[in-house]
């Protein structure tokens, strides 16, 4: 299946890969109103040298579409409103359908009951960040996930 957008600017992608600059798309999941945490994460990932695109509130279909267009390495979503499993699940399904699951790191952060952390892992999120996750944890974990996915040193 050819995926529109995946191979745009292959040179640039390679360049980024060589320079080990990770490109991240961040979005609030659905209608959740709390964005302080995600904006903080945006800031921290940028400070850690990553290229960050913050798109505000969006839904799985648009998030995946933007991920393809922008050719990102990581999609990070934030949910504090309870939709982590429903919309989160949709996001993973959508990524699988587009064949992105293997090369795209999908991470989620927010407020969830502890048991749901395990569920999120099971449905396919590569990284799960609960309240209290430190900058160090988030940055290191994203670098590791990306390096595994892209087969490059963290």
């Amino acid at each position: 299946m050819s995926i529109p957008g995946v191979n745009v600017e292959p040179a640039r992608r390679l360049e980024r890969k060589m320079a080990a600059q990770i490109k991240v798309l961040l979005s609030k999941l659905g209608l959740d109103v709390h964005n302080r945490g995600l904006i903080t994460v945006a800031n921290e990932l940028r400070d850690a040298g990553m290229e960050v695109i913050y798109i505000g509130n969006s839904f799985p279909k648009e998030i995946i579409k933007t991920a393809i267009q922008e050719d990102v390495d990581v999609v990070g979503v934030s949910s504090l409103g309870g939709a982590h499993l429903t919309l989160g699940g949709e996001l993973i399904e959508m990524a699988k359908k587009e064949g992105l699951k293997e090369r795209l790191a999908l991470v989620i952060g927010g407020v969830f009951p502890p048991a749901d952390g395990t569920k999120l892992k099971e449905i396919g999120f590569d990284g799960i960040f609960m309240p209290g996750a430190t900058r160090e944890e988030i940055v290191t974990s994203i670098r590791q996930i990306v390096s595994v996915k892209m087969d490059r040193p963290p």
């Binding site: 659905g30 209608l31 959740d32 109103v33 309870g82 939709a83 429903t86 919309l87």
Partner: peptide, 18 residues
């Protein structure tokens, strides 16, 4: 709830799961 705060109906596609 979130859809009500954001002013979408419960049957709006944007509200699903929330």
């Amino acid at each position: 709830d979130l859809p009500t705060i954001q002013m979408y109906d419960s049957d709006d596609p944007m509200s699903r799961g929330q």
